[in-house]
Design a protein around this nucleic acid. Structure first.
Lengths: 336, 336
DNA sequence: ATCGGCCATCGAACCGGTTCGAGTATCGTA
DNA sequence: TACGATACTCGAACCGGTTCGATGGCCGAT
């Protein structure tokens, strides 16, 4: 690979002139620039980004961590983030953390040591150890979807408590009184908000909350399936299920099918997040959708502006989008 | 951030000794190493990977391109690749190319200029221009899933012609004679192989191939949906559909539903690739599954060995895995 | 003719590591 | 006592860029 010195020699100028030609063409005379361009192109010269990054102190790479890239929510979020980042001139290192906070911490430390330019984080940890770890990072961090309470990081998400409220209200209006909530990983902010929204809305409607109907599905298919099997084989089984995310709704649906129930005739089901290819899943699940492209757009914008010199010490920003109910065919009044 | 010189000063040694302590501890006396460790840890020193990469001439980054990260096949493939790469000490830059060859070329050129250590490619291009572009890359390249004919790149995939054969054979055995094939993007090797496997198997069973029943679904949901709508509203509609991938099977299924057909009573459907969350999709689609973790494992192994000094000029290798039929409930004998 | 200012260019230092060749101290052996 | 071998350690060059301060040529104004 040709280096800047090769080009300088070929064009009969110094390396600083070559560097200038690429970086600040206005400071170089037209004839000189011309000669440099020619020399560079015949030698096939491309500046070595490694050397540039070393000198500049940071790279044109951003890091993204997701809990599970095969979850369509994260997949679609990432797809948009990646496209935006590209347009802003960044490459994206993505790490699938399997929703494990310790893997996340470890990866973040490595990326930070790489002098990565910025990080978009779907956080999966909590507690003082975790937050202090995040605060120690040199790279700017934007959190998406999950908030990390106790940090001053930029944050973009949907109004998740409202989402839970909308679903709960919908089920209550249909006449359900025994509603189970398949909740997410307990210590996560988002999971807590969804539980809070559920409980609030139940109470507001004058309904008792049976805490044994709030179960931990850990945001994944398998746990939701197992918990639903347990819920639906109880003598006092619920008439409706509210899953805190898409994967858990699918796990719940499998349990409903296997136990021979009809959804929605016997059991209603609704969830937060977009269920993939919902039009071929029957019943079509009623859900509260997030605006994924917009989440991605704002997250990338926040990060890009924070990576600029001026944005470094700006006060933290946050945006909360309003989710919207998408009716399916998976909810109906409870059996008489 | 502390540099190696800070550590050297604090430990009262030279920078070379510090470097040695981290790289080849055996060459440093125990007491000295001890002092260096202490100095490093109190200063919070971590070697700057940028500087290391610059000096070594390559980074600990590999690039992965996928056609569409929201397609569960790519998602799961990537997830495994990423995990393996991590274990081998690499970070992964992933780019979603939207299955566009020109975006792929552009990204590959950028990554190559970054002195990326290696590339895992799910290729979406063809033709001499494309192949010569690939051959010019400095970084070693391993291709997965799609082969690029005319290049000498490592290659890992399933026996895709066999996969097509298995599906076709299965449908023929059930008694179908008018079978439509919803094919992938025409110029791609994999799409061609699947068509070839289909045609071969039809002929071997003494059946005519009606070429108007081989349609281009472009490997995606929307096109497959549209093509299926067209196929199933023909007077001489097929009794079975064979989709060349998972997304197209879902698109076809949606068309089947919308037209009010029953699958499998009226129309049988089968496909190649794993359909995500197939246990909640009714009917459960009969499919030929690829061993994704194994594909990922081999691809990463190939790349890691090629990135080593000794592997650089080794002859190209390839592995073809045998796919397996997973019965669902979406296929049945044709209506009488 | 002299001076100040601007423009284009250059040399050299620097980013933070790695590595090679050389220097010094220690030890065993002749 | 002299010698070479061995074990550590060091200084300096280098990877390939960026950038600061300096230099020289040229212009217009005084």
């Amino acid at each position: 690979m040709a280096t800047i010195r090769d080009v300088a020699r070929a064009a009969g100028v110094s390396t600083s002139t070559v560097s200038l030609t690429f970086g600040e063409p206005s400071r170089v005379s037209d004839e000189t620039a011309q000669r440099v361009w020619e020399a560079a192109s015949t030698l096939g010269y491309r500046p070595n980004p490694l050397a540039q990054s070393l000198k500049r102190g940071h790279s044109r790479l951003i890091g993204v961590t997701v809990g599970d890239i095969t979850n369509p929510f994260f997949g679609r979020l990432f797809k948009h983030v990646e496209r935006n980042a590209h347009e802003a001139g960044y490459h994206v290192i993505v790490t699938d953390t399997d929703a494990q906070a310790d893997r996340e911490e470890q990866v973040l430390a490595q990326l930070d040591a790489q002098r990565i330019a910025g990080i978009i984080l779907t956080a999966h940890g909590s507690g003082p150890h975790y937050t202090s770890h995040l605060e120690r990072l040199k790279a700017p961090v934007v959190t998406v979807d999950h908030r990390v309470p106790g940090t001053k990081l930029d944050y973009v998400a949907s109004d998740t408590r409202l989402a839970a409220s909308i679903i709960t209200e919908h089920l209550v209006r249909l006449g359900h009184r025994r509603i189970a909530h398949i909740a997410g990983t307990p210590h996560l902010f988002t999971a807590g908000e969804r539980i809070a929204g559920f409980v609030e809305t139940m109470r507001r409607n004058g309904l008792d909350v049976d805490h044994s109907l709030i179960v931990d599905g850990h945001f994944d298919y398998e746990n939701a399936y197992a918990q639903t099997m347990r819920l639906l084989t109880r003598p006092d089984r619920p008439t409706a299920l509210f899953a805190a995310n898409n994967m858990m709704a699918l796990g719940a649906l499998q349990a409903i099918f296997e136990l021979g129930f009809d959804c929605p005739r016997d059991i209603s089901l609704a969830c937060i997040d977009d269920v993939p290819w919902s039009s071929v899943i029957r019943p079509k699940i009623t859900m509260v959708e997030q605006d994924i492209p917009e989440l991605a757009r704002i997250a990338t914008d926040y990060l890009v502006s924070r990576m600029s010199v001026s944005g470094r010490d700006a006060p933290p920003r946050e945006t909360i989008l309003t989710p919207r109910l998408v009716m399916g065919t998976s909810t109906a009044p409870p059996p008489a």
